[in-house]
Design a protein around this nucleic acid. Structure first.
Lengths: 147, 147
DNA sequence: TTAAAACAGGTCTTATTTAGTCCTCTTTAG
DNA sequence: CTAAAGAGGACTAAATAAGACCTGTTTTAA
């Protein structure tokens, strides 16, 4: 039903969130995929895309695996989305510029542009430092509720 | 590439924009589809969806056609999107609540909720009165530029 | 009263995108 | 030199989007 965030992107986010928990550790695809409940081969593909975007780094060979290539605070939601779904994921309008401006004067297009700008700046403001903090607070609260 | 707005929704918006130009006129599917460059049978489907949502009204039989069921000012972008893509189009998160909260404490989910609220309120604020005005201003400017 | 022009709406097909799988290759610690 | 890891291309399957088709009903006007 045409969502903004695909499953793949969601997996990528969970993966980064997982890697944020221990920055020194080198985690294998197997480990990550189990932790975030994602098929191993699919997770591998996602990690490769994150590498190309300079978000994750890898160590090859036995004892190899993945790590974040930067600090969680320096990775934001917008770039993760773009790394996985492509840069045009931020384009809200379905059509390319030619088709959109076929009437010459597309009033709606300007609305999409404004909206995209707002959404992008909000996504950019969420880095994985903040997200991890928030997650920790939430899980702490959940624990307290249980008792 | 997973856009927020599908082609179908874009067609619907153009269609409403067209119908906003002359509220007394009853336009046939043929006329509308030519005006907005959309296959006739597809346009017909879209108009039926707009009818179910109470946005468009139809007159059957020869001399029949479509009209807006309300004033352009009383139709906003959000409801058009939801009429065509379904109510969950506004859901930015790809997963349903169960899957999303599988970890119990999904920090990202709350971000999506906030974002969705912002986007929805902005979309709601754009009615077709405003959009038509904006289009008119744009086309007037384009004309002046030509001279 | 009937033919033609229009909408109503269900089913079907096709194209595109998303979500994965599979297989072969390379790297590297022990 | 071998086993355990990643690299990466090719492939397949499922879901969604986009559109075509066909049969029916309504309505006006000759």
């Amino acid at each position: 039903m045409s969502m903004f965030i695909t499953r793949k992107t969601d997996y990528a986010i969970r993966c980064i969130l997982y890697l944020s928990k221990d920055l020194d550790r080198i985690a294998t695809v197997e480990e990550i995929s189990k932790a975030v409940h994602v098929p191993k081969t699919f997770m591998a593909k996602i990690l490769q895309q994150l590498m190309k975007a300079g978000i994750a780094g890898s160590v090859r060979g036995i004892k190899g695996g993945f790590q974040l290539a930067r600090n969680p605070e320096d990775i934001n939601l917008l770039e993760v989305i773009e790394a996985i779904q492509g840069p045009s994921a931020a384009n809200i309008c379905a059509l390319d510029k030619k088709a959109c401006s076929l009437s010459g004067t597309c009033a709606v297009h300007t609305v999409w542009v404004e909206l995209r700008e707002e959404v992008n700046s909000r996504l950019k403001s969420w880095d994985f430092g903040k997200l991890t903090d928030r997650e920790n607070r939430l899980s702490h609260r959940a624990k307290c509720d249980k008792r």
